[in-house]
Nucleic acid binder design. Structure first.
Lengths: 195, 195
DNA sequence: CAACAGGTATACTGATCGGTATCCTTTCGC
DNA sequence: GCGAAAGGATACCGATCAGTATACCTGTTG
């Protein structure tokens, strides 16, 4: 295993454990044991646990959004259909056995201090997801698409945390999709598109 | 201070600290110091930290739902208006300086094991909030009120976590209210009420 | 082959964790 | 007013925390 491979392996292990058990509850030693890596190696790559958390969040941010958007684009061709497909992809996500809610929401819950790098990364992730939805709304030429985008983003967030709590996880995504359909339809009919 | 008063004071302190800093990050000693109570007293009333967490969640559950519903009922008289008032009350909640997101969502993020008492209390809280919204829908005689209730519940959850992450916290509640209005209107017009 | 960077393994630090025990004082019911 | 229960303060327990240091091993590369 090369130097950078080991680093990535460490981050991947951290992502998995932080996602399942949380940040404070996951000790350095647990991560090292699970990754099969020594302490010295960890502290060669990261200056502290917080930096490892940051690296984990940053990598997961990229991986997740990339995978999420790719799936949306595979499932539907037009921007309008993709707005709905968002919730199908979410449903598939919730069905995974490795689903423990949103890593970023969970992180925010454990780190309440504002302006810390950890919170910053979480806010960035949420902003980028919102901006993705907003772009779809704009591409779909929906009147007042910015508002609709925020509404749909709320539905998605709500579905994520509801799925995390609920037994029937996928149900939350299906309900959200129904509501999303209604909101899209309404946004569309308030003012006919002028183009 | 009487015996039971001390117990309540301890729980109140725990609620405040758990809400702000999370559950694992808040040590017993911190709670004791903040409450001005000795360790012996804590362990006379609770067998473990987990039991204190449970007591805190249970008490907060009662306090919060009571306060929330009372405010909704003060703000609006008819069930239909109350469905929207839910989001006004949420907006006021988000504006409080002591708002650190939903204690129960945060708890779920730290305790992923299913069937633990802590998760159970969280699920119960969410179920009771949903059932409150459902009752309002039914009282409002909205066709397919059960579906609408779940949609509105998703919006509320989404608003809570979005407010937690965002700078402009109250904005999330206002967006959710707009979406809620649209969903209510639509649910109302799909089929005219038969009564 | 020799040098060296990066690895493992492990022991260690001081701090803190949840929880227990001790000693003494305060409070409260009878 | 007396006895018992409860509380405060504190020391202590073993475990674990994040992070450092030491000693030895390994793979690559001039």
């Amino acid at each position: 295993m090369s130097l950078s491979e080991r680093r990535e392996h460490l981050i991947d292990t951290a992502i998995r454990l932080f996602a399942e058990h949380g940040y404070h509850a996951t000790g350095i030693d647990t991560i090292l044991k699970s990754a099969g890596v020594s302490k010295k190696t960890l502290y060669r790559h990261f200056r502290s646990k917080d930096e490892l958390i940051l690296a984990a969040l940053r990598k997961y941010d990229g991986l997740f959004r990339n995978s999420f958007m790719r799936q949306v684009e595979e499932q539907a061709a037009t921007p309008r259909d993709r707005l709905l497909a968002v919730f199908d992809v979410a449903e598939a996500w919730f069905g995974q056995s490795s689903f423990y809610g949103c890593m970023f929401i969970n992180a925010i819950g454990e780190y309440s201090d504002d302006d810390t790098p950890i919170r910053q990364v979480c806010k960035e992730f949420k902003a980028l997801m919102r901006s993705y939805i907003r772009d779809l709304c704009i591409q779909a030429e929906i009147p007042d698409g910015a508002l609709l985008a925020e509404e749909l983003a709320l539905l998605l967030e709500g579905a994520i945390v509801t799925a995390q709590v609920s037994q029937d996880r996928q149900r939350a995504a299906r309900i959200a999709k129904i509501a999303a359909g209604a909101l899209i339809e309404r946004a569309d009919s308030v003012l006919p598109a002028t183009t």
